[in-house]
Amino acid sequence: IRCIGVSNRDFVEGMSGGTWVDVVLEHGGCVTVMAQDKPTVDIELVTTTVSNMAEVRSYCYEASISDMASDSRCPTQGEAYLDKQSDTQYVCKRTLVDRGWGNGCGLFGKGSLVTCAKFTCSKKMTGKSIQPENLEYRIMLSVHGSQHSGMIVNDTGYETDENRAKVEVTPNSPRAEATLGGFGSLGLDCEPRTGLDFSDLYYLTMNNKHWLVHKEWFHDIPLPWHAGADTGTPHWNNKEALVEFKDAHAKRQTVVVLGSQEGAVHTALAGALEAEMDGAKGKLFSGHLKCRLKMDKLRLKGVSYSLCTAAFTFTKVPAETLHGTVTVEVQYAGTDGPCKIPVQMAVDMQTLTPVGRLITANPVITESTENSKMMLELDPPFGDSYIVIGVGDKKITHHWHRSGSTIGKAFEATVRGAKRMAVLGDTAWDFGSVGGVFNSLGKGIHQIFGAAFKSLFGGMSWFSQILIGTLLVWLGLNTKNGSISLTCLALGGVMIFLSTAVSA
Rank of each mutant, 00 (worst) to 15 (best):
T88K: 11
T160W: 11
M345E: 01
F108G: 03
K409F: 10
C92W: 13
T170V: 03
G287L: 00
G5I: 02
L212P: 02
H210Y: 15
L358Y: 10
T360R: 01
F108M: 08
K84V: 11
T120V: 13
L188V: 14
G78V: 04
G392H: 06
I65H: 03
T156R: 14
D189Q: 08
D87E: 15
T313Y: 00
G432W: 07
F285D: 09
S122N: 08
C308N: 08
S146E: 01
F119N: 08
A63E: 05
S122G: 09
T115K: 09
G28K: 02
S51G: 13
C30S: 11
V114P: 02
A422P: 00
P338I: 07
L322K: 04
D189G: 12
G29D: 01
R357I: 05
G444A: 15
T179K: 13
D430S: 06
Q36A: 10
G263A: 07
V153S: 12
H399L: 01
G5L: 00
A413R: 01
V317E: 13
V437K: 00
T353R: 14
D71P: 00
K128P: 00
E62N: 10
V326H: 04
E44N: 03
E329H: 12
T500R: 12
R138I: 14
S58F: 05
I396A: 15
V388H: 14
T19F: 08
L471V: 10
T309K: 14
G459L: 01
A117C: 02
F119R: 03
H148S: 06
V97T: 14
D71A: 13
I387V: 15
T231C: 00
W474K: 05
C339G: 08
G444T: 15
T500H: 13
S185K: 01
T40C: 10
H214S: 02
G324L: 03
M34F: 06
L491I: 14
S146N: 08
N172F: 06
M34N: 08
I445V: 14
S405Q: 07
A63F: 10
L456H: 11
I152D: 02
G356M: 08
F457H: 08
T427K: 14
G324H: 11
L135H: 02
A418I: 12
N207E: 14
F312C: 12
C60R: 13
M140I: 05
E262R: 05
W211S: 03
T315R: 07
S286N: 02
A176L: 03
K480S: 13
W217R: 12
D278G: 11
R2G: 14
K301F: 10
R99L: 03
T470R: 00
G476M: 11
K124G: 01
L201F: 14
S51F: 08
S485N: 05
L378P: 06
A63N: 08
A452N: 11
L273P: 12
I466F: 15
D296L: 05
S146M: 13
Y59G: 02
V243F: 08
V31Y: 03
C3N: 05
S58A: 15
D10R: 00
Y81M: 10
T233V: 12
I65K: 07
G408Y: 09
S464M: 10
T76H: 03
T321V: 04
G145A: 10
G493W: 09
N481T: 07
V167Y: 03
F411M: 11
G493V: 14
A54M: 10
D22C: 05
A413M: 11
K123F: 06
L242D: 08
T95H: 08
A410F: 11
D161Q: 04
Q147G: 14
F314G: 00
S142Y: 03
F457R: 06
F183G: 04
H148E: 15
S142R: 00
K123H: 15
G435W: 13
T88E: 13
S51Y: 06
D10L: 00
L135C: 04
T351C: 00
L475G: 03
V23E: 03
V56G: 01
T120I: 06
R2L: 03
N362S: 08
N172H: 15
T397D: 01
S58L: 00
G442M: 13
H249E: 08
T95C: 11
K419V: 10
K84Y: 09
G334N: 06
G259Q: 09
N52D: 11
D37N: 14
F463E: 03
G435T: 09
A227Q: 09
E367C: 12
T205I: 14
S16P: 02
A346K: 05
N362Y: 10
P338Q: 03
I396K: 06
K124M: 13
K84I: 06
R292E: 01
A451F: 00
K454D: 11
T325K: 10
N8D: 14
M151V: 14
V167Q: 05
T160E: 04
I4R: 01
G408K: 12
D426S: 11
V91S: 03
A319W: 06
V347G: 06
G356F: 08
Q465H: 11
I396Y: 00
E177L: 03
T170Y: 06
N8W: 10
S260L: 07
V473A: 12
Q147L: 14
I43C: 05
G187C: 02
K215M: 09
F119K: 06
E136R: 00
T233R: 08
P75L: 11
L223M: 13
A248F: 09
N237G: 00
W20P: 01
T366F: 04
W20R: 10
S368R: 07
K166F: 08
P380C: 09
E133R: 01
W211R: 10
H235M: 15
A178W: 09
V347A: 06
F218Q: 07
G104F: 06
F438N: 01
H235F: 07
K93N: 09
G392L: 07
G482F: 12
S129E: 11
R73S: 09
C116W: 08
V41A: 08
G302V: 06
D197N: 12
A35I: 03
D278L: 11
P192G: 02
V12R: 01
V12T: 01
V343F: 04
G195T: 09
T369E: 00
V33A: 10
C74E: 09
V6W: 08
V91K: 10
V434T: 01
G102M: 09
F314Y: 07
E133C: 09
V21N: 02
C74I: 06
V347H: 04
D37M: 14
W217T: 04
W211I: 08
S499M: 10
E26Q: 12
G492R: 10
S146P: 01
M53I: 03
A451G: 03
L441F: 14
S16V: 01
S286Q: 09
P75D: 10
V355I: 15
S368L: 00
G228D: 06
L477W: 07
R73W: 11
A69W: 07
F312T: 06
L269K: 11
V257E: 01
T254P: 00
H214G: 03
T179R: 13
G228S: 03
A270C: 12
P234W: 11
L204W: 11
F463S: 05
N439V: 11
T120G: 15
R175H: 10
K316E: 13
A178I: 03
E244T: 13
D189A: 08
S173P: 11
R57W: 09
T267M: 12
N207A: 12
P39S: 13
Q261M: 12
A275K: 01
L477P: 00
E262T: 06
S440Q: 08
G334W: 03
I365L: 12
E13A: 02
A54Y: 06
D67R: 02
G356K: 05
K316I: 01
